[in-house]
Design a binder for these strands. Sequence first.
DNA 1: CTTATTGCAAAGGCTTTGCAGGATT
DNA 2: AATCCTGCAAAGCCTTTGCAATAAG
Lengths: 120, 120
Amino acid sequence: MERTSRQRSLILEIVRNSRNHPTAEAVYAEARKLMPNISLGTVYRNLRQLTTAGSIRAVSFGSEPDRFDGMLDAHEHFVCLTCGTVYDIQPTLGHPHLPGKTVTNYRLDYFGSCEACTNK
Amino acid sequence: MERTSRQRSLILEIVRNSRNHPTAEAVYAEARKLMPNISLGTVYRNLRQLTTAGSIRAVSFGSEPDRFDGMLDAHEHFVCLTCGTVYDIQPTLGHPHLPGKTVTNYRLDYFGSCEACTNK
DNA sequence: CTTATTGCAAAGGCTTTGCAGGATT
DNA sequence: AATCCTGCAAAGCCTTTGCAATAAG
């Protein structure tokens, strides 16, 4: 089964404490500050493993590199098209129903301009 | 400026007539039936060009290869997690408002099981 | 004629993987 | 002791790009 490792714990902590929805590369950069020998492959392996295990979530917007999210409660995203920040949003949609289909979950992303960028 | 070419018109037609939200590879396979010498690079170039021009749209689910969509009216998607089919859905969400943010558009994907797959 | 577009192949970005050594239970 | 995990480097997948030749306006 699964074993814990210093690397895996560190990666999990980084994703959890991050509000940036970081990419693998960003997690790697952060991890190297505390563990300079950690390899990029290990970061990818663990992000994948943690995602499969359900400890974090993978989100991707358009065709940019995958981002990771330590926030597990149901939530939506708002992407500012000016500064690129991804904000977590409280669920605005109830439990969805579609005729003839069984909906188990959904994903809702809003796009636009955030407060800071609008006031410029 | 832009010039039309037999390749570009064919690619546009394929995406428009397709209900599968095809990948570049799928468009390429289809295009080769009518134009056996067309190259994959040309398919990618034109899909990108048509997307930028607003003639088609790029959609991507998770980290699979990009898919393309010739349906330009506002709509949402339902992805069947069993058979992988992507269905177009009439908009269920009105014009969204979020406090402090300017929302210009949104993307809503439902996930679950389609009618055919549920009845198995 | 001018220059956007093509086919081809090579290169690029992001991610996964094989391996031998090291770490965890 | 058994085996999961790591670092490293090579490979993989999807996509883009440089080039000389071709085709569109």
